[in-house]
Amino acid sequence: MKYITLFIIIFALWLLMTFNLETPNLIVGAVVALITSLVFGKGFLQDSKKFFQLQRYFWIIVYLFIFIWECIKANFDVAYRVLSPSMPIKPGIVKVKTSLKTDIGKTFLANSITMTPGTITVDIIDDEFYIHWIYVSSEDPKEYTNKILGRFEKYIKRIFE
């Protein structure tokens, strides 16, 4: 299963890269995809059947819009903190508990948090994220968990689990 998934992904990427539908190109692309899937198929993502569940792609698109919107908001927030003369920052590291189970979901959540300005994932231990935050707005675990993760978590759950 993993091998077939990888083969299809690589073949699609090859076609996108070469942008050419002549027969030699298709054959070479198939051979390239075959070699790649044979070499790297063993270590590829475990639950690769999820690639064929189409509703996940819908959630990816929704998630993209949400993510971009959050990014813009966070950008303005950080820009305000940088530009204002009094420098209203209150940096600190907070521990956040996530309800995601799979590794790939955690990875994407951590990356999303890192990519939004103002927050950086420092480390993950089991299901606890250690996050450096530019303005620790509240001390209550429930509140800041909701503030940091709540925006992304449910979508990522739909995409990856």
């Binding site: 990888l6 992904i9 690589i10 990427l13 790649t36 899937s37 070499v39 790297f40 270590g43 590829f44 993502l45 590794d103 790939i104 955690k106 990875t107 951590a110 990356n111 480390d123 993950i124």
Partner: peptide, 14 residues
Amino acid sequence: TFIVKKITQIICPI
């Protein structure tokens, strides 16, 4: 860590 591992799994074939 597993973040690096997961990203590697995706990016290496590419």
